[in-house]
Each structure stands twice: as structure tokens, then as C-alpha cells.
Design a protein around this nucleic acid. Structure first.
Lengths: 336, 336
DNA sequence: AAACGTGTCTGTAACGTTACAGCTTTAGTG
DNA sequence: CACTAAAGCTGTAACGTTACAGACACGTTT
């Protein structure tokens, strides 16, 4: 035998509050939504009781009725690399969502079908917004989501002439500052070990690198084909070769902590001493290089801020903000 | 004007299929669940049509009606450390969930209130199962979840005389093998830089370490108070001191890649050469040490397998399996 | 005095699903 | 031939929420 008052184990619903206040269920609903057609005094009373019984709206009920899922989906590539990217970004996102009714759902995909998760989310309407990482210059997921009116934000920019929220690390500025750091240490023959060339930020990095080299009148030391996505063994081998060759750079700008470590591994194997014979600059998200090998110069890239930023942008878009205002380029200076 | 046939943009529901087959909604529901009271031929027909129209059950509908959320929640500490733990574990979990209707929701917490997320999940019944990391020997979350009959699995064991699914890396075996590795290289004075002593696996590690030292008749070199959770700078400083002192170990077993790197940093600063003057063994989850500094000896700890395992265990418990059968101790040998 | 607002509140229906209690139809039994 | 059992199917109600179309009381206007 179960009465309305028998709070017991049952979770309170609108009905519970309606019974407790003597009001109708509709009134309670409107009151908690602060609707204009409810008297101020009544609203206060309802809020009090709701608080007392620990009322929490039933997500399934809301979702079924309104279609609002209160879910943000983070789409992750399971082959993803950058050390700490996933954890830091996830933490950044949850930090923002914590103060909202939103939950974070992780939707993975393999490189074999990058469209699968977005299609799933759109077809089953299982999220109100989406965060995409590893953005491609022409990213089919972006057009698809735009076509289907699902708010999203990308980590990294696109190059397809469409407007959408994004957050990007200012790699041009990073490369520029990295070169400056090396120049300040008297380095003059500098090489760039950049990102995979098909990604847009490779272009940004190269631009910053080249501009700095011109500004400071240094010599670009060309590195063939090596990039940050190469297998670590290959990078290490490259480092070794560079170290052994007579004609070599005295400074290297790397685009990821992993590749920098592999490079350093190779260079040291060849007998070079970092900081004396050659200097290396790299980005890092979680600071571990500093207390391990302080000779490696680092500039910070903050993935947690990226996560926070992306989450805020998606939420803002969902709430009707203009996507054009939700684009953030964050430089190293902002997150040191 | 909207007819049932007007598939258009509308998502198909049971009603759609009912209309298309001429059956009742209930029948369709039962048919798709392969209920015994429906004729084989009808079931087949329903399945066909369902497939054709791309029917996917509405999660909110199911959840509202049955209470089943089809959600597994991963509870993460936002101050979490171990490099790659989060991403690898998340990938492992999603890999298993991908073949099920379950979604993965990330629920974060800060150390200031570890109970908050479990309480939230239980009170709002927002997940069918929970995965806990950073398990404490006496973990209040474990008792709470047991009390409230919510299936879960822990990463790491507990020591509270209760039965529940867990997955643990066999740190005893790790430490034993690590010592063996050092002994094979002729090292005789070996130190342990273990986990924070209040965690259970510190005990396991110590046990394996000590057993190996006895078995191989080696000298334990005591290290004061240093552990893996110390700030990296402190570990580095310790490494440096060890390196400078005349009376020092010739081998160290470390319990995390981070601490090993910091140690090596300090040792090298003191002028020691790894592999010649001293050997270090560490666990690593994502193999980056190997191609960076192969002189550091590594034994693999596979967080992706841990994730897979934990996910499978929670699902099994949800499906009524006996929790006592869902406890897995995974040794290094299993995941090399 | 009738009509009209206006400020509060209410009931009904619907979102998609499934448990449950029926309802036919057909075959089998005595 | 009546009676029962089984097989196969159906309708109703409910999960918790909110949009919508009222309803009622009161004061104000015409």
C-alpha cells in the first residue's frame, strides 16, 4: 500500500510536490520553471517544498516530452594521440557541464568510419550538442551537422567557408614564439618538425615559423617529410641521423611532446647534449617535461581550457547565440 | 497534415512499424523482443520492416517505462594522474559498450567530495552501472553502491570483506618481475619507489618486491618516504640526491612512468648513466619510453584491457551474473 | 448590468515504450 | 458436439513531463 506521502524510497516527482502543496501538477511544473502565469508566493512555496523533498526532474520524462536530451556528446577517435589530450579535455568539459543539467557522453569512432557517430547522434537525436576533435580542413562531419541543425563545436578550425564555433590553439603564435626562444639562445639554423601536412594547423605552424625566421633573419634548416604523426621509431631514427650528420640544425621546433621526446632520444643517442649542442622547443599540455628534462624548452598548450571553451560554445549555440561569435583562438600567452 | 506513411524526417517508432505491418503496437514491441507469444513468421516480418525503416528504440521511452537507462557511468577524479589512464580506459570501455545499447557517461568529482557522484547516480537512477577508479582500501563508495543495489566494478581491489567485481593489475607480480629483470642485469642493491602507502596496491607491490629480493638473495636499499604520488619535483630531487650519494642503489623499481621519468631526470642530472651506473624499471601504459629512452626498462600495464574488463564485469553483473566470478587479476605476462 | 480583462490555476493529451489483462481463432479432448 | 487449451494477437494504462486550451474569481470598463 503506497500513499503519496510515503516518500520512502520513491523518488519525488511533480506529482509528489503537487500532493504536498495541494496544487495541480501543471502548476508545479510551471512554478519550477518560473513561468509568468504563477503567483510569486506560490512559486516560492513550491520551490521550498521541492528543495525539501529533494526533487530532481526526471530526465527521461523531459526528454520524451520535449526532445531535449541534456546531453553533450564528445566524439573521440580511439587512435587519438596527443598525450593528455583526452583526459584534460574531458575534465575541462565536465567542469563546465557540472553547473548545468547536461551530461557528457563519450562517443568513439575508428578512423575507418568517421561519420558513424555523428550520423548515429543525428538519427537518434541522442544529444543536444556535439564536440568534435581532430577536425579536418574539409570535415564532412561539419557539413553534416550544419545540414541537420545540430549545434556543435570543433577543436581546430576548418577551411570550408562555413561558420561554426571552434576553439583553436594559436599554432602560428606558438611557432613564432618557439623560434624566438631559440633565437634568444643564439640558435641560427632552425628546423621545424611540424604537424601532418594535411591538417590545417600545419599551415598555421609553418606560417608562424617562417615569419619568425624572416623577422629574425635566421636560416631555415629543411627537414624532409618528418612530422609529428610519424611513428615514434621513425622520429627517433631521424633524430639520430640529424645528430650524426655534420650539417645539422642547432635548434628544432617540434609540434608535440611525444615527437620532441623521440627526437631528443635520437639526438642523445647520437651523442648530442640538449641545451649545449642543440635546443628543442615543444608544446606540452601536462607539464612533465619540465621536471624530467628541463633542457627541453616548452610552451604550454592547455587542453583543459580548450575543453571548457568548447563546452561553453556548444551550450551557447544551443541557447541561441550566434555561432560567429563562438570562435576562439587561444595563444600560448593566454595559458602559460 | 501528417500520415503514418509520411516517413519524411520523422523518426520511426513502434507505431510506424505497427502501421506498416498492420499489427498492433504491442505485438510489434513483443516481436522485436522475440517474445514467445508471437508467431515466428510475424516476428520475421516485423524484423524485416524494422530494419528497412531503420527503427531504433527511443531511449527516453524505454527509460521512462522500464527505468532502464542503458547508461554506464565512469566516475573520474579530475585530479587523476597516471599518464594515459583516462584515455586508454575510456577507449577500452567504449569498445565493449559499442556492441551493446549502452552509452558511456563521464561523471567527474573532485577529491573534496568523492561521494557526490555516486550519490547523484543512485538518487536520480541515472545509470544502470558504475565504474570506479582510484579505489581506496576502505572505499565508502563501494559500501554505498552495495547498499543501494547498483551494479559496479572497481579498478583496484578493496579490503573491506565484501564481494564485488574488480579488475586489478597484479602489482605483486609486476614488482617481482621488475626485480628479476634487474637481477638478470647483475643489479644487487635494489630500491623500491612504490605507490602511496595508503593504497592497497602499495602493499601488493611491496610484497612482490620483498619476495623477489628474498628469492634472489638481494639487498633491499631503503628509500625514505618517497612515493609515486609525490610531486614530480620532489622525486626529481630525490633522484639527484641518490645519484650524488656514494652509498646508493644500483637498481630501482618504480611504480609509475611519471615517477620513473622524474627519477631518471634527477639521476642523470647527478651525472649517472642509466643502464651503466644504475637500472630503472617502470610500468607503462602507452609505450613512449621505449622509443625515447630504451635504457629504461619497462613492463606493460594495459589500461585499455582494464577498461574492457571493467565494462564487461559491470554488464555481466547487471545481467545477473555472480559478482564473485567477476574479479580479475591481470598480470604483466597477460598483457605484454 | 453586461461585457471584458487579467491574474492564477487546472485538466487533458501526448511523447514512445512495455506490463498486464484480455480477446479471438484454431486445434485437441472427452 | 460442447468444452478446454494453446497460440497469437490487441487495447489500456502507466512511467514523468510539458504544451495547450480552458476555467474561475475578481476588478474594471462600457
Amino acid at each position: 500500500m503506497k500513499t503519496e506521502l510515503d516518500a520512502g524510497d520513491e523518488r519525488p516527482t511533480l506529482k509528489t510536490i503537487a500532493f504536498l502543496t495541494g496544487l495541480g501538477v501543471t502548476t508545479v511544473s510551471r512554478a519550477l520553471k518560473n513561468g509568468p502565469e504563477i503567483g510569486e508566493e506560490t512559486k516560492e512555496r513550491v520551490r521550498q517544498i521541492a528543495k525539501q523533498v529533494g526533487y530532481r526532474p526526471n530526465r527521461a520524462g523531459v526528454r520524451l516530452r520535449t526532445g531535449k536530451t541534456n546531453v553533450i556528446s564528445l566524439i573521440l577517435n580511439t587512435e587519438e594521440g596527443s598525450m593528455g589530450l583526452v583526459s584534460e579535455m574531458v575534465y575541462g568539459i565536465t567542469e563546465v557541464l557540472a553547473e548545468t543539467p547536461y551530461h557528457l557522453v563519450i562517443t568513439p569512432y575508428s578512423l575507418s568510419d568517421p561519420m558513424e557517430p555523428v550520423r548515429y547522434i543525428v538519427e537518434t537525436r541522442s544529444a543536444d550538442g556535439v564536440i568534435i576533435s581532430r577536425t579536418e580542413p574539409k570535415d564532412p562531419r561539419v557539413s553534416y551537422l550544419l545540414d541537420h541543425n545540430l549545434p556543435f563545436a570543433t577543436h581546430g578550425r576548418t577551411d570550408m567557408g562555413v561558420i561554426h564555433p571552434w576553439h583553436d590553439y594559436d599554432n602560428e603564435s606558438y611557432a613564432y614564439n618557439a623560434v624566438k626562444l631559440l633565437a634568444e639562445r643564439g640558435r641560427r639554423r632552425i628546423a621545424l618538425s611540424g604537424p601532418p601536412p594535411h591538417l590545417l594547423y600545419a599551415r598555421h605552424t609553418a606560417r608562424g615559423f617562417e615569419r619568425a625566421m624572416r623577422d629574425m633573419k635566421l636560416d631555415i634548416f629543411p627537414l624532409n617529410a618528418m612530422n609529428v604523426d610519424s611513428p615514434a621509431e621513425a622520429i627517433r631514427r631521424d633524430g639520430r641521423e640529424i645528430g650524426l650528420s655534420a650539417d645539422r640544425p642547432d635548434g628544432i621546433v617540434a609540434s608535440s611532446a611525444m615527437s620532441a621526446l623521440a627526437l631528443v632520444g635520437g639526438l642523445e643517442e647520437a651523442g648530442l647534449k640538449i641545451g649545449r649542442d642543440i635546443d628543442i622547443v615543444t608544446k606540452q599540455s601536462i607539464s612533465f617535461i619540465g621536471w624530467y628534462k628541463p633542457e627541453i624548452l616548452t610552451i604550454r598548450e592547455d587542453f583543459r581550457t580548450a575543453g571548457r571553451d568548447l563546452a561553453k560554445s556548444v551550450l551557447a549555440w544551443i541557447d541561441g547565440a550566434d555561432p560567429a561569435t563562438l570562435q576562439h583562438l587561444v595563444g600560448p600567452e593566454a595559458s602559460i
